[in-house]
Amino acid sequence: MNDTFVIKRATKNTELFDPLKLHASIVAACRSVRAFEGEAHITAEHVCKHVIDWLINKTEVTSEDIRRVAANHLAVYHPEAAYLYENVGMMV
């Protein structure tokens, strides 16, 4: 996998894609809907794998793209968590 850069939606800054950060945000979404700890980590691993597969051959994506792709895959494993993951920026 090439290094993929992520353009942040809010700041327009660019940073290197960090799978651990994605993993942590998926785990947080799963916890928010009361998923068990192990279930949350396994789901996050699966979703991260899908996102990394999608990122192969991409050099630059937006954080919004990653959120959308991750939410689509998360919806397969945990629809409620996917809903919250997608909507956390649209609550206020």
């Binding site: 785990v27 916890r31 928010s32 956390v88 609550m91 206020v92």
Partner: peptide
Amino acid sequence: QVSVSVLTLLSSHTIGRG
């Protein structure tokens, strides 16, 4: 709904941190 929105956000981050 501002107070309710922020409470849901606060709860989301608090539960999300475990």
